[in-house]
Each structure stands twice: as C-alpha cells, then as structure tokens.
C-alpha cells in the first residue's frame, strides 16, 4: 500500500525540503542584484520558481508517494492551459 510505504520516512525530509526552498528563495533575490542580461535573468528566475514548485509538490504535497498518474492529471492540464493562453494572448501582446 502507498500509505505504509510513505509512513516509513521520518520528519527529516520536510526539514531538507524547507532548507532548499529557503536557499532557492535567497538565490532568487541574489540573482536580481547581480547584473545579468535580462533574458538570462528571466530564464534563471522562472527555472528556480519551477524548481521550488516541484519541491513543494513532490515532498510537501506528497506527489512523489502517490501514483505517477496523479502528478500527470494535475500538471498536464495546467501545462496545456498555459501553452494555449500564451499561444493566444502572448502573440497578441507581442504584436503591440
């Protein structure tokens, strides 16, 4: 059963996740202070935001311990929605 497997690990995983979330947050603020080219900066910020989201979903929301299909039913529709919105609205915005 999923739940028994999950109950085996201790509290340490939450402390480790918490620590890395804080490290990435500090890195996010730091990267805006050094003078990077704007495209590189945005790529770095978005990449770190996605990394934080993945950490929260995998360990705090236990997606790593659910069936893989659960992560898919949550992530795929969001990805499709964002792509569709960018395709429609984003092109419009760039055309200005």
């Amino acid at each position: 059963m999923q739940e028994e497997r999950h109950a085996e690990h201790g509290y340490a995983i939450y402390a480790i996740t918490w620590f890395w979330l804080l490290v990435i947050t500090v890195a996010e603020i730091w990267i805006t202070l050094i003078h990077l080219p704007r495209t590189l900066l945005i790529a770095g910020l978005v990449g770190m935001a996605l990394l934080k989201a993945a950490l929260i979903m995998a360990y705090f929301m236990h997606l790593r311990y659910e069936r893989p299909v659960v992560a898919a039913i949550f992530s795929l529709p969001i990805a499709v929605l964002l792509l569709a919105l960018f395709a429609v609205v984003g092109m419009d915005a760039l055309a200005f």
Partner: peptide, 19 residues
Amino acid sequence: WHFVDLVWVFVFTLMYLIP
C-alpha cells in the same frame, strides 16, 4: 495550504522579481 504556498512562488517571482 501547500497550494497557497505554491501559488505564491509564482506571484513572488513574476510580480516582484522580474525587472
């Protein structure tokens, strides 16, 4: 509760950090 934290990750990045 974790979802609210998750959303803030993106709000914080997009509203405050991207110049």
